[in-house]
């Protein structure tokens, strides 16, 4: 019994090690990630965020960029963002980009994924990231909002495209909880039944020949009707817009934007 369990554990450990080794790859990334034209960040914040962005950019092989502007007359933030990307992409020879753009004058924020990130950070995941960062933006916490964008996006991008990364079934704590409950349930059942089980049922002593229904009534009494509106299924809240598009230079992207 004991040796059998030890062997089993060893196999499990080997399997875990094998699986975790296979996802680490590092590639060079751009030098500059923060383009703070609106001067919303302090020097130290920029230095800090550059470090974070560089670290994650290398890990993911996707550059995380933060672009701020303060242009009251900008009609569409996506155009501004697209132009920036086209230029940046040629300069740095890098197509895989996650770009967080904000216009402090119009209070627009737009998060986009280019190249590889277009699939790994699709519109749904962009929306989920926005859900997390918009409150911080509303508080004026732009540095934290970008940091959150970088960490959360890279976490989401680990997951296979199309999968909801916040699905409870993928959470370790939930899996552990299910495993423990199931273990306790099964062992509890075994313990409960160790002294022998009751195997008589309602039909054991039932006399079908003399049991019968002698009177039935199923009388309609009244009815109630309740109405409610069909819930709108657009999911957008707080003035959402976008959902991807194409830049002037012809690169398609995933994305989503909000007012904050």
């Amino acid at each position: 019994m004991k040796t059998c369990q030890v062997n089993w554990l060893r196999t499990l450990c080997l399997m875990l090690v094998f699986i975790s080794v296979s996802g680490v790859a590092a590639l060079a990334a751009a030098d500059e990630h923060i383009y703070d034209s609106a001067n919303l960040l302090s020097e130290s914040e920029i230095a800090d965020l550059e470090a974070v962005a560089a670290k994650y950019s290398q890990e993911q092989d996707v550059d995380f960029l933060f672009l701020t502007t303060a242009d009251e007359n900008m009609p569409l933030i996506t155009d501004y963002m697209g132009d920036f990307f086209d230029e940046w992409s040629i300069e740095n020879n890098q197509k895989n980009v996650v770009l967080l753009t904000m216009n402090i004058a119009t209070r627009d924020v737009y998060l986009a994924g280019f190249g590889k990130a277009e699939t790994t950070l699709d519109n749904k995941r962009v929306d989920m990231v926005l859900d997390r960062i918009v409150p911080e933006m509303q508080n004026g916490d732009y540095a934290d909002a970008f940091r959150e964008t970088v960490t959360t996006s890279s976490r989401y991008m680990e997951y296979r495209p199309g999968v909801n990364p916040e699905n409870i079934l993928l959470k370790s704590w939930f899996q552990l909880l299910v495993a423990l409950l199931l273990g306790a349930g099964v062992v509890g059942f075994m313990l409960y039944n160790s002294g022998g089980r009751v195997t008589t049922t309602a039909s054991t002593y039932f006399d079908g020949d003399h049991t019968r229904v002698t009177g039935t009534r199923d009388q309609f009494r009244n009815k109630t009707v309740s109405r409610r509106k069909v819930p709108k299924n657009d999911g957008g809240s707080g003035g959402g817009f976008g959902g991807g598009g194409t830049t002037g230079g012809g690169t398609s992207f995933s994305g989503g934007g909000r007012k904050f």
Partner: peptide, 17 residues
Amino acid sequence: DTIYTETNFYDVRREID
């Protein structure tokens, strides 16, 4: 664009040997 939920109430009786 409205969902109607209709609840019908019944008086049920059974007499059984």
